[in-house]
């Protein structure tokens, strides 16, 4: 861990009326780390990510992402992060290239910059041949890679992926994770949620959230040793049912 953490949270809390969705979240993620943010449905993962992305103001605690204080330096924060949600938020009536150009454009990239970035990203995503195709006609796996591309267009320092691989085949998932590794190797911090426990094994460290609190945070190997689980699936079930 060199210098300041890429994602840092202390006592981060979000309440909706009487309901506490996220309770006193503490975590620290280093630059270039792939951090798996696991939990059952409704455990509060999405609420936590929405706070860290500046979409939802916290009710308490503090957090810093890419050096920006959450809830304060929102403009700078948003320029330094990329966010890909579980619903692929692409425009189906726009082509692959137009989607990429739009998302680059709202990050303030100029025309020449956009063109250069598209020429660099599309081949890496395996979408170069599809650049003129309407997004609505693409297979799901392609859409996911394009979604990732749109979140990467402005070279973010921290990438938030909220269940990025839902509903695609294992080959496509493996390909997607290759892209994630590539980004991490280039120094991008990846903060990812997933329900696939084989994917959890790919992460450097993993946290498991139950009812708004983090109940465990360690490397996959460390978690297996501590809980005595054979694999991450086993670890997850033991922690969540406990």
């Amino acid at each position: 861990m060199s210098g300041e953490a890429a994602v840092f949270a202390r006592g981060l809390t979000r309440r909706f009326g009487d309901f506490t969705a996220v309770e006193s979240l503490d975590l620290e993620v280093a630059g270039g780390e792939i951090f798996g943010f696991l939990g059952a449905n409704g455990a509060g993962k999405t609420t936590a990510i929405r706070m860290l992305c500046g979409l939802l103001p916290p009710s308490g605690g503090e957090a810093r992402v890419a050096g920006c204080r959450v809830g304060r330096d929102t403009g700078a924060l948003k320029r330094r992060i990329g966010y890909m949600s579980q619903r692929f938020s692409l425009y189906e009536d726009l082509t692959v290239l137009e989607n990429l150009e739009f998302f680059g454009g709202v990050y303030g990239l100029g025309r020449a910059e956009l063109a250069a970035r598209a020429d660099e990203l599309l081949p890496r995503l395996g979408l170069d041949a599809e650049r003129g195709r309407l997004t609505g006609s693409l297979p799901l796996g392609y859409k996911q890679r394009l979604s990732l591309g749109c979140a990467l267009a402005h070279r973010p320092r921290v990438l938030f992926l909220d269940e990025p691989t839902g509903g695609v085949d294992p080959v496509a998932r493996r390909g997607f994770w290759d892209l994630i590794y590539e980004q991490a190797a280039a120094g991008v911090t990846v903060f990812v949620t997933t329900h696939y426990m084989d994917e959890a094994e790919y992460c450097g460290r993993v946290s498991i959230m139950v009812q708004g609190r983090i109940v465990a945070l360690d490397t996959p190997a460390g978690l297996k040793a501590r809980t005595g689980g054979a694999d991450m699936q086993d670890v997850f079930l033991r922690l969540v049912d406990a």
Binding site: L55, K78, Y83, S89, L90, Y91, V106, Y107
Partner: peptide
């Protein structure tokens, strides 16, 4: 409805 509005709101726009 399609969720793209939320996606846009994560950008600095």
């Amino acid at each position: 409805e399609t969720g793209t509005l939320e996606q846009i709101l994560t950008t600095p726009v």
